[in-house]
Amino acid sequence: MAAAENKKTRREFIADGIRTGGLIIASGAIGALAASSHAEDTVWQIDPYKCTNCGLCATSCVLDQSTVKCMHAFAMCGYCNLCSGMLRPERVGNTIEAENVQCPTFAIQRSYVENPYFQYVIDENLCIGCAKCSKGCDAFGNGSLFMQIRHDRCLNCNQCSIAEVCPAQAIVRVPAGKPYLLKSKIKQDG
């Protein structure tokens, strides 16, 4: 009887030890994380310099309409009259009609600025992230059209399902404080 009693208290003692240890470890870990400035939340973003515009973003996102949209670095744009991001290379004419344009949803819209320049703007509500325009711009233009994850739509899944299939491994975790990797290169003396 006494032995049984003893055993029980020993088990209780071990359990108390484990609990105390767990409490100390847990509070230590949470405290360390809270104190560390690196523990900022991360979000997913496309590194536009790695992206090869393969078009998987459009179909791989968990959202029905991909969170990836085309963006435009206006400072890099040539404001061309004939935009290779807008018009297909194997088109039959230069009119903005379904048979000539790259964009399957007419999300890229053009407006006149001054002779001979035109401005190209992406309508994000229409853009489905197929990267056809940015592919065209990269191939023949200045590469000012590029793909980005838009954080007003992104659910920030713990495992981005686009990152999983991205052939260029261009989708990376970035700190939530600077959630975009934009394509206007900052220059100063390096």
């Binding site: 404001y79 600025v113 001054e114 320049y117 200045n142 992104c154 939530a176 959630p179």
Partner: peptide, 21 residues
Amino acid sequence: KNPPPDFTTGYQYPVTINPPP
């Protein structure tokens, strides 16, 4: 590769809003 043009009409680049997470 077309160099970004020098605009003469005082055209300003449109502002792109990048919504935060």
